[in-house]
């Protein structure tokens, strides 16, 4: 009987449809990235030539520089944002009630609530007005800012589930505040911190709209470099890069998924 009320005819098919819609374009691009032909419309047999082209072709230096920028920005932004978010999460969930708590909560989540294009416009205006030359630093600052809520949410969720008794016990045994944090609380929070970090990393790596507004002369990240190429038409080397980025994303999600599973099983 309980199986009966859970079952609705057609819902399974809708799920299949949903997955087909989500995956069809990605699969098509992956398949065509192995196309040996220079034209994207005709199939010229299986080949890795476009992957070779990504690393050695005429556009390779541009993509390499862009990939390096994307990677370093994502690493630094995710690290800084995670540190800020961890501190904020501890204060929000361990320091008791305080005036301005709901305001702080709103502030942390503000980057999620304001549309991305508005953040982009506002940030560009800000940097122009205070006279900061747009470039690597401006991208980094913008990325740190919008990564904070993405890092915060998993950390706070994890922290909520940790009993205060653990730290209380440590403190009762004369552990200093620092010891209580680094030896007791942080290890317990770690799965949340790692998933927050990975989330922030991916969000930074993926960002196009804001980066496009605040990047300076000669400064490209992978998404803006790809956008620049794609505007002139989808070329096979773009499909190869896309497939590589797809693989990187898949690795990260898998990591984050596994960390969460392990985390759920521990205390």
């Amino acid at each position: 009987m309980s199986r009966g009320v859970r079952h609705y005819p057609g819902f399974g098919w809708m799920t299949v449809l949903c997955l087909v819609i989500l995956y069809a374009p990605l699969i098509v691009v992956t398949v065509y990235s192995f196309n040996g032909s220079t034209s994207i419309t005709t199939w010229g047999g299986f080949s890795l030539r476009w992957y070779v082209d990504v690393f050695t072709g005429p556009e390779a230096p541009r993509f390499k520089a862009a990939a390096w920028n994307s990677l370093t920005i994502a690493l630094i932004a995710a690290t800084v944002a995670t540190a800020i978010a961890t501190a904020a999460a501890v204060a929000m969930h361990r320091a008791g009630g305080f005036r301005g708590r709901s305001l702080t909560f709103a502030l942390i989540n503000l980057p999620l609530m304001v549309p991305e294009i508005v953040v982009a416009v506002a940030t560009l205006i800000f940097f122009t007005m205070v006279g900061i030359t747009t470039g690597y630093m401006t991208i980094l600052i913008a990325h740190i800012t919008f990564c904070i809520p993405f890092a915060y949410l998993p950390i706070a969720a994890r922290l909520q589930g940790i009993d205060e008794g653990y730290e209380q016990a440590a403190r009762d045994l004369y552990a200093g505040r620092g010891q209580a944090f680094f030896l007791v609380l942080l290890p317990l929070m770690l799965p949340g911190v790692i998933s927050g970090y990975l989330l922030a990393f991916i969000i930074s790596l993926d960002d196009f709209i804001i980066t496009n507004f605040v990047k300076g002369a000669g400064m490209e990240t992978l998404p803006t470099a790809i956008f620049g190429s794609v505007k002139q038409g989808i070329k096979p080397n773009i499909m190869a890069i896309s497939t590589l980025m797809l693989a990187v994303s898949a690795v990260f999600v898998t990591l984050s998924y596994l960390v969460n599973r392990v985390g759920r099983k521990s205390p």
């Binding site: 320091a95 940030t123 008794g165 209580a180």
Partner: peptide, 29 residues
Amino acid sequence: GGGGGWRPLLVPLLMPTWLTIGIFLVLPV
């Protein structure tokens, strides 16, 4: 104050968040 005695550190813990989002998002808007 909670179990870890974080209350006295409230402001230092939240300051980075307030400053970052305040200066680089609220002010720009």
